Amino acid sequence: MSAENNLVISVQGVLGIISLDRTSHLNALTLQMIQGIQSQLDQWRHDPEVQAVLINSNSPKAFCAGGDIRYLYDSYQAGNTQYQDFFATEYTMLSTLRNFPKAVIVMMDGYVLGGGFGLAQACHIKVTSEKSRFAMPETAIGFFPDVGATHFLSRLDEVGVYMALTGEQISSSDALYLDLVDYHVPSENFAKLEAALSAAPILNPVEIRKIISAFITHPVESELQKRVGLINKHFSYPRLEEIEHSLAHTSDARDQDWAKKMLDLLQQRPRMAKQVSLKLQQTGQNLSLEKCMQLERDLQDIWLEQGDFIEGVRALIIDKDKNPQWQIDNVNFEKTLEKCWPAWSKQYIDSLCYK
């Protein structure tokens, strides 16, 4: 067993284990952690002693609360391009995970947010517990859901739009209902499941699923499922203004409290982040995962300069005054998109432009 870069690496039987170990920061991913995951996968790819990989957490509170946004902020403020290197390295690692030739299991206990959500979605077999809470909360800091959310949220239709715009957390029951995870195992049984996987002489996908099936239980009913009709009603509109108008003018008294809460949330988010998040969800439905990821990468490289991310992090993380001064408009944003996006995406510029 070895520990470095806030990762604990071990091999138990034929199972390679990568444990996120930055518990003081809810395992927010640093560049070194991302590089460490990539390096370990590269080592295990052709190692006959490792038949499968498990990614889990040493934190009792979180699997992973996202990326290290303070690092991105500091890089931009220092005037260097390390924030772009962070995104590029992260996306390479996510691609390696998705295409890894051996089964990659992820066990999630606690918060699964932002970059942690994207990390989990890149794994092949996803196990969650009753303690898990999932969200893509990027609009709250003036950003947009990335790490593949343009693909995996857009497959959820209106629910994906709702999650992308509001950043609301969903439960493990909700995630199961939406097919974002595969299995529910009680938190108290995670150690037993890991021990069973470590003791198995063969760990191919069929055997892994057989082992997990011995520990699964039925979670409580999904609360989100009860609200799908309501979400579909309000978040099916093609324009942000129509969504907010629908929430503001709901006619059913039983739904007014929820609608008001969602409207209040949306009105706290910057317009640019909401507009682009909405358009990415709409466009992502028609794109492959690879092209969704490329769109996100193109936007990431210009967003810290053009978007509200820096101001959002300042207000919520650095100064903690919780009073971000969002941009009202950005007339240069459309021109920037036209310059930075590759030729294959030109047909989508009109729908993605900030208008």
Rank of each mutant, 00 (worst) to 15 (best):
E223L: 07
S172I: 08
S345L: 03
Q40D: 02
P324Q: 04
L278T: 00
M108I: 13
V104Y: 00
W341N: 09
L280A: 14
Q38Y: 10
V206A: 11
V112N: 12
D42I: 10
Q268Y: 08
S277G: 01
K291C: 04
A103L: 05
V127N: 07
I302V: 13
R297P: 02
T217A: 08
E338T: 08
K260V: 06
L280T: 09
T89K: 05
K279P: 01
L287C: 10
I17C: 14
L337Y: 01
Q267V: 09
Q282C: 05
L287M: 14
E168K: 12
M136K: 05
P137R: 02
Y83K: 07
S132M: 14
G229D: 12
C353Y: 12
Q327A: 15
E244C: 15
Q84F: 01
G67Y: 05
K339E: 07
F144N: 07
Y71G: 10
I317P: 00
P101E: 08
Q300R: 09
I318D: 04
E221W: 11
W344F: 04
K274V: 06
Y71L: 15
S277V: 00
V159G: 01
H25G: 11
L240S: 10
M107C: 14
L352S: 04
E158T: 04
P101Q: 10
I208W: 08
Q225S: 03
Q40M: 11
F333P: 10
I202W: 09
L203W: 14
D157E: 13
S277I: 02
